[in-house]
Design a protein around this nucleic acid. Structure first.
Lengths: 175, 175
DNA sequence: TTGCCGAGGCTAACGTTGTTAGCCTACGGT
DNA sequence: ACCGTAGGCTAACAACGTTAGCCTCGGCAA
């Protein structure tokens, strides 16, 4: 028998995916498990714990996708964007909640960051800049901040082009 | 006498600033105006309208700051970052809610974007990439996604350096 | 076999949230 | 002098997360 706590998180993810964040309610969640809402608290401390668990899942999955895709900068950020657009609610949930590192399983954060570091040749500041760039473009896109007809592919292309100096094997281009 | 609706939005901004987003409650808001909560609905349609109004304010203020600061890319993004860190709650609120353009006063969006466009010499795709970069770095910083000891100044420096090719007067560096 | 004890369900209820319905009052214009 | 409306009020609702307290069943020890 699987851990009941995991079943709760599974159900939360299912509801989030299919019905959106507002539908992820303790009562709706309990319904999904054919249970009454207060019984959920036998398995989890509260809603924030569920959200933290989903956040961790998102981090792990995105990290895995990036690890599989990391050849060069272009394919890496393309993978980032694709995953976020394919799982927008999970991405948003994970991005909008601030990380409480203590609760996070160890290594998750580092694993997610590794592919970025690899592509910058270990330059951690450049990796963070690229991370910010990818997250920012995705976040603005998900939040409907670009005009409907905006050519976002072009924006991504420029972004990749700008950071190419950090990723092609090139001796010194840093401040 | 000023518009009562504006007073409601003013109060909301005040509470948001001093007590955080969770404190922005219809009842708390009514208290601030020495009124009962239901009376608020004589002046505004609902909470979402307040949030939209705050979002618009944020956009206008940030746009104004950027317009005043735009000399080169470095000072522009520095101004962006500074404003966001000085008004984190307003920034978050404005970033996390998707724009409903119909409600937005016309010109606000374009005015906020203008300084960025100026610095890229009219290259709109590059301007969007830079916007994404600045927003992403700020958002990750506000969401506590970087380790506490991270050297974010270095990340910003790399970001600026990467995009310098689009901003220094330089004929052709685009894909 | 008996006894018990904890895991995991249940109902009832609480406080807080946004919001609606409906009433009342005072003031400004005809 | 009237009347309508702007703008306040109280009462109340549904939905939310959460707590308290009870019951039941299954497995294990004596």
């Amino acid at each position: 028998m699987v851990n009941r706590r995991d079943e709760v998180v599974d159900a939360a993810e299912r509801i989030l995916e299919h019905e959106g964040p507002d539908a992820v309610t303790m009562r709706r969640l309990a319904d999904e498990l054919r249970i009454q809402a207060p019984s959920l608290y036998k398995h989890i401390a509260g809603k924030t714990e569920i959200e933290a668990a989903l956040q961790q899942r998102a981090l792990q999955r995105l990290g895995a996708v990036l690890a599989g895709a990391s050849a060069d900068l272009a394919t890496l950020v393309a993978a980032y964007r694709r995953w976020a657009l394919e799982h927008p609610r999970l991405y948003e949930l994970s991005a909008r909640h601030s990380l409480d590192r203590p609760r996070l399983a160890s290594g998750v954060e580092a694993a997610a960051a590794a592919p970025l570091l690899k592509v910058t040749g270990g330059n951690i500041a450049a990796a963070r800049a690229i991370w910010g760039l990818a997250h920012g473009l995705v976040d603005l896109e998900l939040a409907n901040r670009f005009p409907p007809n905006a050519d976002l592919d072009a924006a991504w292309a420029h972004a990749i082009n700008a950071f190419a100096i950090y990723c092609t094997p090139q001796p010194e281009g840093s401040p």
